[in-house]
């Protein structure tokens, strides 16, 4: 394995982490808002807040890690993506900012207004949608080089079916991941009502997720044939991903082991995500930028990797401690004790 692949694998892993942890968070916000509308708030709010409260800042760091890391390992991406993504990413950031700060205001400050909860829930869906545009753009065909600088063609972007299927996928996957996780969490909290409701949501959102995911592969055939052909080489990974999907749905359907259901779901997304990433290789941006011509110099690459390994040595024990205290601590999950500042 060369340094380029090592670098992108590390970054891709953090992006994967963000997608899973972020999806749980964003989806939870949406279900919370939705339950307000349907008067089922009593059932969900407690479960959702107990899980989210101690970890929300950690979620954000996954994202920061990804975008800082990509500038470090692949500095040329700053030029291509930085110039073109001003609008979609700024909108994403503004939504993130509103959502993140509102969350803190509401949780630690004083209870607010119902309207905010709706905004909060909605922002949670718009964020994956606006950030997923980056993936769409990476498929190429939307950026032109004019006078030596890249320019994004919004018209082509917004009229492309690929764009919209990726948007739909990002939203339904968010809700699906979140619902499966929260089903498990509610079950651990011995909250039967909430478990049932969330299980229902998980089953509802499983279908659109798998349909759009398949549809995207199909659309790539038209949009980016090279990538489509590459995907064929990684077909086993996508098949495995599909089998894991079936496994999750089956466990949910038969009300068996929800912990396993979430495990299989994580596997499903991991296979699809790494398969997609691998088939994208070697391009970071079709057809302008590859891993190799954007890679940083060896001195920096090695320094970053050493920093990364040392950093992990610090982080992994801390994350384990966080999970042991909150995620896997029976008394905490069941709401037996409350030691909030």
């Amino acid at each position: 394995m060369n340094l380029e692949i090592l670098g992108i694998t590390v970054l891709w892993t953090f992006l994967f982490g963000y997608i899973i942890v972020g999806a749980i968070d964003f989806g939870a916000g949406f279900f919370n808002a939705y339950s307000l509308l349907t008067g089922k708030q009593r059932i969900l709010t407690k479960v959702i807040q107990r899980y989210l409260s101690p970890v929300w800042e950690v979620t954000n760091v996954f994202l920061v890690f990804f975008f800082v890391g990509i500038i470090g390992f692949f500095p040329k991406t700053a030029f291509y993506y930085g110039t073109t993504l001003l609008v979609p990413v700024s909108i994403g950031v503004i939504l993130l900012a509103i959502r993140g700060s509102y969350y803190a205001f509401e949780t630690y400050g004083a209870r607010g207004h119902k309207g905010y909860s709706f905004m909060y829930g909605l922002a949670g869906l718009l964020i994956p949608a606006s950030l997923s545009i980056v993936l769409t753009i990476s498929e190429g065909g939307f950026i032109e080089i004019v006078d030596g600088s890249p320019v994004l063609d919004y018209w082509v972007l917004f009229t492309s079916p690929l764009t919209w299927s990726i948007v739909v996928l990002s939203i339904s996957a968010t809700l699906y991941i979140s619902a499966v996780f929260l089903t498990w969490y509610a079950n651990k909290a011995r909250d039967i009502e909430a478990t049932d409701l969330l299980r229902k949501y998980a089953l509802i959102w499983s279908l659109p997720t798998i349909i759009t995911a398949g549809g995207i592969i199909f659309e790539l055939r038209r949009h980016n044939f090279d990538h489509y052909t590459n995907i064929q080489t990684f077909l086993p990974m996508f098949l495995l991903s599909f089998i894991l999907f079936v496994g999750t749905v089956w466990l949910l359907w038969t009300r068996r082991n929800y912990g396993w259901a979430f495990g299989l779901l994580a596997g499903q997304f991991a296979f699809a995500f790494y398969g997609y990433g691998a088939s994208h290789y070697p391009y970071l941006l079709y057809p302008h930028l590859t891993l190799y011509d954007s890679f940083t110099n060896p001195a920096m690459a090695i320094a970053l990797i050493i920093a990364f390994i040392l950093g992990l040595g610090l982080l992994i024990p801390s994350l384990v401690l966080l999970m042991r205290l909150f995620l896997f601590n029976k008394d905490y999950v069941r709401g037996k004790d409350d030691f909030h500042v």
Partner: peptide, 16 residues
Amino acid sequence: ALPLFMETFAFFFEAI
């Protein structure tokens, strides 16, 4: 990029 990258570890550590 090195200190910028290390900063994210500092955040991470702090956040946890």
